[in-house]
Design a binder for these strands. Structure first.
Lengths: 338, 338
DNA sequence: GTGAAAGCGCTAACAC
DNA sequence: GTGTTAGCGCTTTCAC
């Protein structure tokens, strides 16, 4: 067998025995607690190195009746926004010695029990969730079991750091109205509690401008489902001349549907996405999109988690960032007569 | 405080006390072990539900002197390939009740100690690594501490499931040669042990065709660094008419560099990527790319991990899949006279 | 069928 | 400075 014999990992006791001290001293030494002479400390570290000892954080947590790991739930690993949030969370957590346990939603099927469950099983001390698919109610229940920080979505009674979706959707819609579009559709995601703000803001903005809103919900948040939904929109008799989508992936799907139908962007169809992903910035894609500053969102969520861990009694955090519309080349005035 | 009082989670003892049996019975009941009457079992489950008891998998592992969690290391969360591998791994692990702990490399800086360390700390029973940045030697050392499955990269003496990179790079290079290109450059990633196969295969294919290889290593695997490196390539006196890149992100960066320099793809520059990412399939991007079947790679890695867990003495796995060149519109014959 | 007791690797009083 | 002891939530002999 090429595999070497894997010896049972060294424990505190092994180190203590090797040095000839008690386990307590080893424990103290590794946690930097006072009460261990420098010599002893050196001897302990040397022995530990020799034996290949590494503290068992899991057992330590158990003994301490305390949970040091922070769990991060991500709805969609294929969406850059979540990668950005991860980056942000990490920079915030970097200082502390916290372990970060990631968990990704299995599929975008409207419930994240599996992923959340695995975080609970791993016995994390707090969960940062981006973006919860569950209802507000279930989220609030979850928060009773373990501290919860919701990113990207505001939940009453739960630490939340989110982006002003109403403002973002309004900016996107107004941009299209200002260009002269009147038949502006909205390609929404599935209608979960956390995802209604953008569609409502879109509808309100349309009505305020005297226009008729037209919202179609995609099956999920993927490019494929965006393409399917947009194909339906573009097949209508009075097809829209502009579409504002819930996220960039849906927008890219709509873009494919347009080209598949012989339409081009922005000449025949204006498109506004949401997320300002890297792909949206590619030459030839040039997607107008709303940037919700995901890295910063993640960073703040990390800070909020740290705060909550330090003070369980602190008031509920509720932070809101302002998104920003980035205008590129996927939007233009509608063609004459269309 | 809006936050409800968070009660200490119920334990086995609580359930046992509630039902009026010993802890052992509760333990047996939850693990489906024989020796518990159906009535008792029912009573136990009822009480557990009432009390909101959920088994502590971490403590169970500790007591069992066994590690049930599987750790998955991903090099780059922004690269779709890794999202695909994650999907594959999950489908393979789905049957089993194994916990999956994710860990993503902090930055692409040539060493993944941090991410690996966190997996060790979480006390996982096996690590699936995609793609290790460390040297073969360090990977082999790691494998002595905890079972390791390497995906995407073959490591001697370690369970590996990878794609035939030599074949992939050869196919890409030959495709460009066949189109008539002679000045074909290769944009490689940083030169880690695991990433040399593609560049070597490219060089060999060039030499075999009587052409002179020109390899430039990007600083990392991101689009930005691809853009910078490609800009240097395109600024050369005798600039290449085609570039084959280590991955799609680098290729997209090269594409940006081309357009920034007034060149268009494929008229002035042919481009072949690697990964066949979703972005590469977008209308207007149409990137010719090598598909390494990442989902299947991940699935097999998951299976390999399960096997290793079941039989530590089994022979080392070494699986290799054949990649596939997907030709799109980013490659064309070189312009006359160039 | 059921339960008592020891132990997993570690922490945290408290005493010496 | 250093060691003793009890215990975290659970599993696992082994005896009743």
């Amino acid at each position: 067998m090429a595999l070497d014999h894997r010896p049972r990992p060294a424990t505190q006791s092994d180190v203590a025995r090797e040095v000839g001290v008690s386990r307590t001293l080893v424990s103290f030494a590794f946690r930097g607690a006072p009460g261990v002479s420098d010599e002893t400390k050196q001897a302990i570290f040397d022995a530990a190195k020799r034996l290949g000892y590494r503290p068992n954080a899991v057992a330590a947590d158990l003994a301490r009746k305390h949970r040091s790991a922070v769990g991060l739930y991500l709805m969609d690993i294929r969406n850059e926004v979540y990668a950005d949030i991860l980056s942000g969370v990490r920079t915030a957590l970097h200082q502390d010695r916290n372990r970060l346990i990631l968990s990704v939603s299995r599929s975008v099927d409207g419930e994240d029990q599996g992923a959340l469950e695995s975080l609970m099983e791993a016995r994390v001390g707090i969960i940062i969730a981006a973006t919860l698919l569950d209802s507000d109610e279930r989220a609030q229940e979850l928060a009773k079991l373990v501290p919860l920080v919701s990113v990207t979505r505001r939940i009453e009674g739960v630490d939340s750091v989110h982006s002003d979706d109403a403002a973002g959707a309004r900016a996107a819609t107004e941009h299209l109205i200002r260009l002269g579009h009147t038949r502006i559709a909205h390609l929404a995601g599935p209608a979960y509690d956390g995802h209604t703000v953008r569609r409502e803001s879109y509808a309100k903005t349309m009505r305020d401008a005297g226009l008729k809103p037209l919202t179609l919900a995609a099956e999920d948040f993927t490019q494929d489902s965006g393409e399917r939904a947009a194909a339906r929109l573009l097949g209508m008799a009075d097809r829209p001349t502009a579409i504002f989508t819930h996220n960039d992936q849906l927008a890219l799907g709509a873009r494919e549907a347009a080209y598949a139908g012989g339409l081009s962007v922005p000449a025949d169809l204006s498109l506004v996405g949401y997320d300002n992903s890297r792909t949206s910035r590619l030459h030839g894609i040039d997607l107008t999109s709303v940037d919700l500053h995901a890295v910063e969102l993640g960073r703040r969520a990390g800070v909020a988690a740290l705060n909550r861990l330090m003070d369980p009694e602190a008031p509920i955090a509720d932070e809101r960032l302002l998104p920003e519309l980035v205008v590129r080349n996927s939007t233009a005035p509608p063609r004459e007569g269309s």
